[in-house]
């Protein structure tokens, strides 16, 4: 499977697991354009925390790479990596590449 597609699926299934906690049902039909955090996003801060922790776990389990998603890099990025599923996929992919080339 394409790596980005795999990351995207991990993110979506991480979102699925916290559906019971979300104030309203989340619509994933827009795929990578689904807005996550911030303007128009579906997650509150605790939702973001959970999503990040769950994704980190799943990436480690399924792809064998241990990454830390929230870092200075994430905070200082010009465009928040947590805006949409698409931006998060891109950001996670860059973290995995860094890890693999380190």
């Amino acid at each position: 499977m394409n790596k980005n597609k795999m990351i995207s699926e991990i993110i979506q299934s991480a979102i699925q697991t916290q559906i019971p906690l979300l104030p309203e049902p989340i619509d994933l039909s827009q795929g990578e354009a689904t807005q996550l955090f911030g303007e128009g996003g579906v997650l509150d801060s605790m939702g973001l925390v959970t999503l990040v922790l769950t994704i980190e776990e799943m990436i480690e389990d399924e792809m064998g790479v241990a990454i830390t998603i929230v870092s200075e890099k994430a905070m200082s990025a010009r465009r928040s990596p947590f805006a949409t599923i698409g931006s998060l996929v891109e950001f996670i992919d860059s973290l995995i590449q860094e890890k693999q080339h380190a």
């Binding site: 697991t17 916290q18 559906i19 019971p20 906690l21 769950t54």
Partner: peptide, 9 residues
């Protein structure tokens, strides 16, 4: 995890 979140909600 899903069961826990449902329970805690």
């Amino acid at each position: 995890r899903q069961r826990l979140y449902k329970f805690c909600h």
